[in-house]
Structures are given as structure tokens and as C-alpha cells.
Design a protein around this nucleic acid. Structure first.
Lengths: 205, 205
DNA sequence: GCAATTTTTGACCGTTTGGACAAACGTTAA
DNA sequence: TTAACGTTTGTCCAAACGGTCAAAAATTGC
């Protein structure tokens, strides 16, 4: 209905600059949230002037929307990879590993996403109710089958998936708290490894 | 050092109005975050004019700080109640229940807290590194003892606690997503009950 | 009833912010 | 050389915002 009829043709510079702005915006937005970030901050982080930035994105909203929509793909990839034909334990373990790696390697993306959901998901609610729900329902069915076959401990598959999301993303979104509680000693980079091992035990063991 | 030397004496009206403002501010802050909220919005929600509100709180920051510090008490209470002398299974189950009830009954508080942590906990970092860390270390030791005695499945007690936080708070903080994924049918109020049962099975079963 | 005190408000101010715009600058190719 | 096109910037504006202030209104204590 209201999709962009034509994909705008972009020059090399436009592609590069939009990419550069996206990176800068991710940095800023993930730290201060949408309302807490200013176009000037993003422009500074991207090393350009505000009007110049607005030459590439028509407004602040569009920068944010572009970012979060691009992010959604990356975000769902690990769940997509879960293979019904594989071994349940291995599949779950891999899923947890991948999600944990994302928390470790892309904490800004995780926080950006968390922020959007916390505010009520104003920009991506349709995606959650559509694409995401479909994917989760599909994978929940897979997990459910595994449970019926006695290859995985029985429980509610939807809440099972929620629990994996919650626990893995916790290490990105609540990182400050995790580090504060673990204290200097154990809050080195090893904490992600420890957490991953713990979660495997929790969800599989 | 820099503590308020004297607790300011407050009239009945001051106590009532500060309470009223707190309630309004919780509503607004939990929806839009600190920077996304305006004093006018809070004043409106409290049914008073902006200057009037600023007669009770010297600025926006003070409203927020008051809220979040008051919240911390409530937030830690359930963990405080965990009793080393009790039965491990019962204690863990009660803890999960209480945390789940808080997500159901005080989602605004949960989101306010999540927001603060996401932004790097600028106002409560000392509390996290002090009071919270001490409490968690203490309870982790209790859990650890239970595990050593073979009364609870062995795992890392700190990550065990994190996992309970993450999963229970998920149902408040990511409520929109949970409801979107569960869809109309199963996203009624029963979802908290379902989740609580699932989590008991996960952490105890 | 009245003076002292507390509470409330309208008007106001300086700053920040998102965004517009036209003019300048740079690049390319006929 | 010059026309065409893409890129960059300085300047500007209106709205939103946090916060002040003096004065009016309400309440309280005697």
C-alpha cells in the first residue's frame, strides 16, 4: 500500500555516508535513547555538519527507523537458523551461544532494541505482530515436537523462547548492573563465557 | 559527607503533593524515559501547574532521583526475604512468585528501573556497587550452600540470580513484545500465571 | 479577625532543539 | 569553458523546554 514505489538510486558517496551516519547514530541512540539524542550529537559523531547529515536523512525519525529496521534482520537470524532436523540439544545450545555472542559483540544493537520495546515499540509493533510472531510460532512448534518426542524436557515452548531471549539479552542490556554485582574480579570478559555455560546448564542440563 | 544535614520538615500538603507528583512522574517517566518526559507532562498528569510542581521539587532531576531511590527499596525486598533457614525449593519458588507478581503489578516501576540501567545507571551506580552487590553476594552464598548440601542443582549462584531477574522482569519490560508474540488468544492476564509456572519448572524442576 | 506563612499561578526568560534554505563548493563531462 | 549535478555549510527560525519570579490566593496559628 504505502511502500516506497521506487528504491531511490544512490551514489557511492550516499551509500558510504548513510552507512557512516548509521554507525554514529547507533552509538548515540543506544546511549541516550531516541529523545535523549540530538541530531547535532550524531552529526558530530559522524564528523559532519547537521545540515549535511539532513541531506542524507530527511529527519531524526528516519535515521532511527532505518537503524531499527535494519537491526531486526540481524536480530532474528539466530532463531531462523534453528533447524528442526538437527539434534534438539545441539540446536538449543547453538542458539544460546549465538544469542550470547550477539550480546557480547553487539551490545549497542541490543540496547537500541530494548529501548524501542520499553517505549512500547511504536515503530516496530507491526513487525512484532507479523514477522516475529510467525517465526516464533514456527520455532515453538518445532520445540514442541521435540518435547513430544521426549527429546527435550517438556515445558511451554513460547515461554522457553522468551526465557532464552531474556537471559541472553540481559547481559547486554543490564551490563552495568551485571558488572557492578560481579565486582571487579569476575566481571572481566570471561563473564559472557560463564554466563553461556550457566545458561546451557539451565536450559539443557 | 554530602548528606542532607537535616531532614526538611514537611507539612501535610507537602507530603500529599509530593506523593501525587511521584505517582504522576512514574507514569510519565516509565513511558518516555527521563529525557523524553517534560515537566509539563508530569504537571498535567498531577493536575497542577508547572511552577506549582517546581515548588515541591527543585527540578526534573530531583523528581527522577527521588522516584528511583524510593523504588530501589521495593525492588530488593523480595530477595531480602529469601531465608537461608527455609527449604531451598520453597524459597526459590517464593522468590520467583514475588518477582513475577511485581512484574504484573508494578510494570511501570520495572520499566523505570530498566531505563535507568540501560542508560548506564548514572544515578544509582553506587547503590548497585554497594548495597545491591552486598545483598546479592550474601544470597549467592546461601544458594551456594544449598547447592553444596545437594539440596539444589549445582550451578553458578550469581548467574542463577541474574537469570531469575532477567526472566521475571522480561514480562514487565518487554510486555509489548510478549503480547505481540503470544497473540490475542493467550496474551490475557493468564500469561503471568503461565510464565510463573514455566519459570518454576525451569529453575527448580 | 488578622497577621504570618504556605501554596498557586501567570508571565516571562534563556537555551536547546529539529529542521529549512539558499548560497557556495566540488566534480564531472561535453 | 561551462553547464549540470551532487555535496557541504552558515545562517536562520519557530517550537519546546527547563526553570525563575513576583504577586495573588489560600491556609494556618493566634
Amino acid at each position: 500500500m504505502d511502500k516506497p514505489a521506487v528504491r531511490p538510486k544512490r551514489t557511492r558517496i550516499q551509500r558510504e555516508k548513510r552507512e557512516l551516519i548509521g554507525e554514529a547514530a547507533l552509538e548515540v541512540f543506544s546511549q541516550h535513547g531516541f529523545r535523549g539524542s540530538t541530531i547535532d550529537q550524531i552529526a558530530d559523531a559522524a564528523g559532519m555538519s547537521k545540515p549535511n547529515l539532513l541531506y542524507y536523512f530527511k529527519n531524526k525519525e528516519e535515521i532511527f527507523a532505518t537503524l531499527i529496521h535494519r537491526l531486526m534482520e540481524t536480530w532474528l537470524a539466530p532463531l531462523r537458523e534453528m533447524d528442526a532436523a538437527g539434534d534438539p540439544q545441539t540446536e538449543i545450545r547453538s542458539y544460546i551461544r549465538r544469542k550470547m555472542e550477539m550480546s557480547r559483540d553487539f551490545p549497542r544493537e541490543s540496547r537500541l532494541f530494548a529501548n524501542e520495546i520499553l517505549q512500547g515499540a511504536p515503530r516496530i509493533l507491526p513487525l512484532l505482530e507479523g514477522e516475529l510472531k510467525e517465526l516464533v510460532d514456527e520455532k515453538a512448534a518445532v520445540i514442541s515436537a521435540w518435547m513430544r518426542e521426549g527429546r527435550l524436557k517438556k515445558s511451554d515452548p513460547h515461554h522457553f523462547i522468551f526465557a532464552i531471549w531474556a537471559t541472553t539479552q540481559h547481559y547486554a542490556d543490564f551490563d552495568v548492573q551485571v558488572r557492578a554485582v560481579l565486582g571487579g574480579k569476575r566481571s572481566g570478559e570471561g563473564r559472557f563465557e560463564d554466563a553461556a555455560r550457566f545458561l546451557e546448564g539451565l536450559f539443557i542440563g
